[in-house]
Each structure stands twice: as C-alpha cells, then as structure tokens.
Simulated scan of single mutants.
Amino acid sequence: MHMDAENKSNEKTDQSQGAKPDIFYKVDIVVIGAGQAGLSAAYHLKREGIEPGKGFVVLDDEFGSGGAWQHRWDTLTLSNVNGINDLPGLAFDAVVDKDDKGLQANVALPKYYEQYEKTFDLPVIRPIRVTEVIERKGRFLIHTNGVQFSARGIINATGTWKTPNCPKYPGWEKFKGRQLHTGEYHGPEEFRGKHVIIVGAGISAVQLLGEISKVTSTTWVTRRSPDFRHYEFNPELGREAVAMVEERVRQGLPPKSVVSVTGLPITPAIEEMLNSGKLDRLPMFDEITENGVRWNDGTTMDADVIFWNTGFRHSLDHLAHLNLVTEDGGVVMAGQLATQVAKDPRIHLTGYGPSASTIGANRAGRAAARELIDFLQLK
C-alpha cells in the first residue's frame, strides 16, 4: 500500500557517524499479524473511524493472505478442520462453499481472508517481518526488514505458528532418521513404509496419528496420559475453559491451551481408533538414539521418523526489549477480554491465552481496538 510522505517521522535510530538514519512512518496504531485476530482488529479499528494507512496499518510477514492456514497440511479439509468462524462483517460461506467438504483448508481459508481484506480495503502491508519493537520518547519504534514504523499503540496478533515448541531430548543430534514438527507436515504419504513415532497428547497428534497409521506403522508416545472424555463440546464448556485460561494470564502465568482444559472429546473417529488399538500409548522416552529411542528401563525402539506434535509457543520474541514477560514466563494481562498488557496499556496481545481460538480471536480484535482507541484518546 502507498504511504503518504507527510506520515514520515523525523525520529532516527542510533547510527554510526556518517551512516544514513532510519526514517520511520508515523501512525497511531500498528497491528502486527494478519491472521484472524489481526484482521478482526483491523476491521474494528476502521469501523471505529481510525483512518487506514494514516491512523493504522497491518504488518504481515506472509507473501499472501491466510495467516497460518495457508501452511496447514493438504489432508486438512472442511470436513475435518476444527473451528472455522466468520470474521466480523463477512460470512465465510459468502466467499467459500462450506458444503464442499473435500476442499482443503489451506485453500479455502486463504481465499476467504484475501476477499475479506479486499472487501473492507484493509491496509495490510506484506511481506514485511517485524524484527523488534522498542519504546522511545513515548512512542514505539517498529523495526522491520522493510519500511520502519513509529506508533503510539500496538496490537500484536502474531499467533504461534512460527514458533513451534520442540523439546530436545538427550541424543537429539544423534538420530539418523527424520525429525519434524506439526508445522512441517504435508500429508501421510511421505511416511509410507517407515516406522513413525508420534509424540504429543493434543488433538493434532491424535488426528495425524489417525492419518499416518492408515499408510504405515506407528507408535504413539505421550508425556502424560491422554485426557479422553465422553462429552459433546458445547458453548458452556467452551466458556468455562476460556475462563480458566483467562485467569492464568491475568496472573501473568503462561497460558494453557483450551484443549488442555477441556480434554479430548471422544468423537466417532477417536472411538474407532481406541477400539482398533491405534491409540494405545507408551510413556515418554528418555533418550534419542541413532536409530530410535530408549526408555530408562533399557527398552529401545527403532524408528525412521520422530514426529513432534508438541504444540507451539506464542510468537513474542520481537517484543523482548519491552520486558513484558514475567519470571513465570507469561505476561500479566488486563482489560475486558484480557488482551491488554497490564504493564503497558498501549500494547494489546490478541490471539494470546483466552483469545487463541478462532472465535476468541474475533472478540479479542474488537476489544483490543476499542480499548486502545479509548486509552490513546483517538476519538
């Protein structure tokens, strides 16, 4: 998008003598990330009267629309995807035929997001990666690998997809086979004829175990016993789970996933896997060897692939200089929906903690936009 010259700031970063100083474009608010939470925030900022381009911009490090959805595996379709919610103002089925259950999520969602950005003429700039944010003279300097920005407030909506959590057990570097994380998965066919150890007790681990076990031999390993529950997920249970996650982040504790609170509902597909023995799990191994894994009692298992479905951590490294993280490893959150950073109300984290779900991201985008506008007295 075009940035008006009058928005250029005279703020300069420290440079060695004779070096050309960085020029920062001044806006009121920078939204970092154009996934569900970022687009929701952008929609509400514009709806509240903040001028796109001058009042706010959205910075996205992808080459196209769709956030993390564009990187999901090909076998994730509209028939088995978990949690598609309409963005505010434009229904998903107004853009994509939701009855086409075979349509890949990594095609359908990017199409929807792209149309959403066009429909509301949102000021998304891409590809541009935020490398760090620092505070200076009452404003935030947003350093990127492209244009630099200066803002009064920040809505961070970077999600988790770019920061996989992959615990490196002893012997990690010795393994001669392949190790990969959920974010690198493309489909089960790449594992055909290989023995795959699948690590993790979440919904992704179970879903992908189901896929991969249809084409090759698998072993399921988890640190804790999987929490299967006989219940049908409903809005009331969802609200209870979100409330528990919200309580943690308001105390500055690292957020837990909603699934860690609700457990895994036993769907017909999971019931079938339980009955077939595919979900017979082993406790977590203690060491990785050249050819597989080893437990403390000396038991070993050979493997061609170790597949880590061990979740993601929130992508907040670019905010490190703002010293938001507590000794407990979380951020103390405040505000109506716990999107506001208590230490600095000019910063909102959406898609963090209780707003990590797709429906939560929508509500968080609205709350963050309105609270930040009020705090900065932009209206």
Rank of each mutant, 00 (worst) to 15 (best):
R139L: 12
R126D: 10
H181C: 12
F149E: 02
H181G: 07
H181S: 12
V133W: 01
R136M: 06
G200E: 11
E173K: 15
V199D: 03
K137C: 09
S213V: 04
S225L: 09
G183I: 03
E190H: 05
T144S: 12
F140Q: 01
P123H: 13
P127S: 11
S213F: 08
H143Q: 07
I128W: 05
G200V: 11
I155A: 13
A201L: 03
K168S: 07
I134S: 14
F140M: 05
P226Q: 09
I142L: 05
E135R: 14
E184H: 04
N165P: 00
P226I: 03
W161L: 09
V196Y: 06
I142Y: 01
T119F: 05
K111R: 15
F191V: 05
F140S: 02
K118V: 03
Y113E: 06
Q207M: 14
W161R: 08
F228P: 00
I203M: 13
Q148I: 10
P170A: 07
G138K: 01
G153E: 13
R152Q: 14
R192M: 05
V124A: 13
S204F: 06
W161K: 06
E211Q: 14
H195E: 15
Q207I: 12
T219D: 12
K137L: 14
I154D: 02
W172Q: 09
L109C: 08
V124Q: 06
T144P: 03
D227K: 13
K111C: 10
K174P: 03
F233V: 09
L141Y: 01
